[in-house]
Amino acid sequence: MRLRVCHLYPDLMNLYGDRGNVITLTRRCLWRGIDLEVVPVGLGERVDFTRFDLLFMGGGQDKEQRLICDDFRQVKGTALAEAVEDGAAFLAICGAYQLLGRYYETGSGERLSGIGVLDVETRAGKKRMIGNVVVTSALDVGRTRTLVGFENHSGRTHLGPRVNALGNVCLGYGNNGEDGWEGAVYRNVVATYLHGSILPKNPWLADWLIAQALGRRYGEGTPLAPLDDTLERAAHDAAITHAESLARQDRTPRGRAVPGATRRVRT
């Protein structure tokens, strides 16, 4: 079996070890005998997104966001929105999350328009939201999973009625530090503020994305062989313990949810 991944703007949008996500997808496919081809796509390149099974885009600074915003408007935006509506799996981190939404308003009040496939709006706040994050998520149908990572953003994102949250914040700020939601999910798009990188310590999410991609190319229910995730699970659990201990020292804010809680993501 083979899969093709489109890595959008790898040079410009790789702020906090985002490439770790691509490394993780590649290895987890390799270990299962799935041939994963990663195609970097840059500014000005016109792309037929139907050729890809999975899309990935990381975060960037305001300066890069501006370049991407122009490129979306002039070159890729329409095709990208069509691919999302068509059900392409997409992992979008931080800056990418913001630009899939309606707009991102920078600290200086400049409004960068996004492609609007996610019904979210983002405005920069004064204080950066920085620290370890623990989230519970009901993305994986029938199971409550946890996500661990690190966030660093000044953008405050608010969800509209047409998207789901990725999860509930247990520790950390999440979308805006106020409403207790983190990330957004729409069709097969997973958008989040978590880096760290997110996939290595949350292998279930990596496998969820791979499963969506396989399902699209080879039909629903294409089996995914299990892997030995002892090391990854230990890192996941250690990160939660560490975030808990920082929260006890008041260095990480507490959300409303508790790890392992079964509260449903809103629909």
Partner: peptide, 13 residues
Amino acid sequence: ERAHDLAVRLKYA
């Protein structure tokens, strides 16, 4: 303190 993160990184390397 983040030994586990490093171990995972090495595995994926």
